[in-house]
Amino acid sequence: MSGNPILSVRNLTKYYGGSRSFFDKTIPPVRAVAGVNFDIAPGEVLGLVGESGSGKSTVGRTVLRLHEPSSGRIVFDGAEITRISASRMRALRREMQIIFQDPFGSLNPRSRVEQIIGEAVDLTGPRSREERRQRVVKMLEQVSLTQEHLRRFPHEFSGGQRQRLSIARALAAQPRFIVADEPVAALDVSIQAQIMNLIAHLQRETNVAMLFISHDLGLVKFIADRVMVMYLGRIVEMASVESLYRRPRHPYTRALLASAPVVDPRTARARPRVLLQGEPPSPADPPSGCAFRTRCPFVLEACASRVPTLREVSSGHSHACIRDDIAAAAAVAATASPVQPEGI
């Protein structure tokens, strides 16, 4: 992790929609992402964790400018790409690719495998037909598919195989940065492990930088070097994997870690379930101040008045909470059971 970051995001904000109707101006825009900052070093895997509606997928799509950011700056490889023209952006697309969640929606049902992956191969420069085909076959072999699959359509594949195709397509362009947006969430458990191994293996092999988006803390821990936790459009905590999972500081991160079921009945019985009240507020009407205050067990009056900023509390570990006392207490009692359970 030395040198300049491959991707640098500053104060990224994205609003969606709002009513365009002449008669009704009452529908407010939805603030999906609110002032997000992060860097990704070349070859690094940055995990992004959050629940549905946290804005994690929006971050993934806006940094690639698949959705236009409302404000903020995106710097890729030292050059700002936030406002560059569509045609200049197109030239950069080869360098930044994406793997989607839905193995059934992410491949054009009317295209054959050769065309799906060939289109990505084409971005790396002109080739003869035969060279192109050989390159496609090579990509297929990398993801444990074979030459026989060239002429097939996506619907002839299983979910796991389709996800392999998505990965092959993303890597065929030889990118330097990949967004992986919940790449295994739609797959069965036994297939998930296959695909995670494949992604981890290829990432190490190609040394591509990756933003790995997931709601599953276990997957992120397996693949990522550093982790960010998002809640309602903001990053509430960012740290290295070891530090975050050992010493979570933000009350939300701790609740998230504590409510994720563990695959170990004895641990499950021994630890009290940390319960958060209620559900995340609507991103169309976020609370003032700290977004988490409506569900936080440690809320103070001050939490409502200002938005806590992300600040570094130890080397490489930052969080956005004004209460250092609970964070410190948590650090001390890291191995003991952290918080008392709330009511139902």
């Binding site: 989607f100 969640q101 992410s106 054009n108 049902p109 289109e119 998505s166 362009a173």
Partner: peptide, 10 residues
């Protein structure tokens, strides 16, 4: 997503 994928390919 396959339309977004086409856009991602430029």
């Amino acid at each position: 997503e396959y339309v977004e994928a086409a856009r991602a390919l430029g």
